[in-house]
Design a protein around this nucleic acid. Sequence first.
DNA 1: GGTATCATAAACACAT
DNA 2: CATGTGTTTATGATAC
Length: 416
Amino acid sequence: MGPVIGMTPEKRAETPGAEKVAGLSQIYKMGSLPEAVDAARPKATLVDNESADDELTNLNWLHESTNLLTNFSFGSEGLPIVSPLYDIEGDDVPSFGPSCYQNQEKKSATSKPPYSFSLLIYMAIEHSPNKCLPVKEIYSWILNRFPYFATAPTGWKNSVRHNLSLNKCFQKVERSHGKVNGKGSLWCVDPEYKPNLMQALKKQPFSSKSTFYSPPASPQSGSLSPHYLSSVLKQNQVQTLKGEKPLPVKTAVQKKRSYSNAFNHSSAMRLHESDSLATSTDPKEDHNYSASSMAAQRCASRSSVSSLSSVDEVYEFIPKSSHVGSDGSEGFRSEEDTDVDYEDDPLGDSGYASQACADTTEKGQPDKKMRKQACQEIDEELKEAAGSLLHLAGIRTCLGSLISTAKTQNQKQRKK
DNA sequence: GGTATCATAAACACAT
DNA sequence: CATGTGTTTATGATAC
């Protein structure tokens, strides 16, 4: 099984765009537009013409983001997702004959999934609209998709919890106290490790459909569009270009222990070695595993693959300055509806994947419509945000050209 | 054979 | 008190 657990933050640096920047939605969420601009182009100033030019004229990241927005669609309810991999990776999986698939379904119902628990959890979380799931929902998702576990010894739940607890890829997010509903916390995928998980998923030697069981009535709500991967990659590019680093509220050191550190390290390295998208990184960083540096790096690299998704409705990374404990703790900030009340969820369901699946299955069209509507709204908001950024970029460009024009005129006058 | 990864089991504490 | 959740430790299987 591919190495997944606890890929080191160092690995993150090699993952394209995984590093150092907030997702577009984070910019969007930053509130004030100047902030957003700064975040997008931290180096560019009106004074520094050259760098400004570089930054101003090089609006690729913005185009990327718009492409991203175009490609990225929420929910994609209508799409018959057949595989968690298909769903998450967004790969256009080669056609797989129905009969073949059915055979595989039969097979999958009894055979053990080829994915590690880490990947299963990742898929479960990634399928959730909010990219956060309580353990119970993770169980449900896995059970739903891999009936093998229905008959498997109960120990697998222990393994899931064990993985969540130990695996660096997963972050626990406390529910806010006000609306405690259900035990435990929510679990999210650390955006920093998402590229690694994606890689691990892609590296699975198994056909994505070979063992995946798609329940006949499972509507795959909250599933991601087939463009997910490309979107993620594009987004990563955008994030890389922006250089913004949102700081999580949760402490990076909180759970990851030497044990996981130890056995996670090499996996990260392996992934690194085979990561075709890898970029060069400071070799020194590869061996820096101090808690503080890890935390710092995690902060620095805190990008959010899911940041363009509805997760932003519930969780957002916030700047350290605005939300940090004296110990410098970091993490997610839970918003009002962080501990999403399953019953009160405006989306008409729990807001969690499996719940959404179940609800859609049970309630049918209305929820689907509501969810679709919500997704469209979010989509529009994001497009609007991109539009704003483009607008700002346009203004910026205009200003730049005006300044250069003024300068040339100035020079002409001096010559005279 | 050593090491790393992963799965599994178990014990424990804590919360609900 | 029962159950669920989260953490930790230990061990074995497997692959490299």
